[in-house]
Amino acid sequence: RPWSHILLAVSPFLVLAVLTRLLLSAPGSPVIEWLVPLAGVLVVGFLCKSNTLFTVYAVGAFVASLVLCGNYILLVHGGGYTGRPSVSEHGWRATELNSIRAAEADLQKTFREDTVVPEGPVATLVGNEEYNHVERAYARRTWHTWLTGLYAIERHDALVWCQGGEPGVLHDRIVIREK
């Protein structure tokens, strides 16, 4: 079989690779989902003598690759998995920092300058139940991470906790505590 036939058969996978890489930079992009079908087409292209069988395999592998890339997108956007653990964790820590800053501002509004804020849940101290319902998330490797590049997202219920102190020096006395 001439090289051009095999190149023609693998080119849709390369287009898919470029598209997914460009469109899905933040939550991660599929790799194995187009690489395995592409490798399959190469193997069948070199070793299979029947042209019909080769075409059927190439088309089938491409359809499967489309489904796999689509499924990858659904998995990383569904909230259960992430392909870029460091990017996701950076986002989660930023959200936690926002809660801490908001808690600090609310505490400074609630307590006068010359008083000492007692230790306790910020929700009770400022009378805003939202501070009892924050979340702490982690990206965890699973048994298939080496293959799929996907990390499972583990979520824990948490609350904003104030360790007590003067209103002016609260910024490092407020923490996110898991329930």
């Binding site: 194995i32 989902e33 395995v36 079908p37 490798a39 399959g40 087409v41 193997v43 069948v44 070199f46 070793l47 299979c48 069988l53 080769f54 395999y57 089938g60 592998a61 499967a64 489904v67 796999l68 499924n71 990858y72 998995l75 998995y81 298939h144 293959l147 799929t148 996907l150």
Partner: peptide, 20 residues
């Protein structure tokens, strides 16, 4: 995830059948 891994497995199995 099950769909994902089984589809990848199918691609490999069919490639081995086609190559042999």
């Amino acid at each position: 995830m099950t769909l994902h891994l089984s589809l990848l497995g199918l691609i490999v199995v069919f490639a081995l059948i086609g190559a042999s």
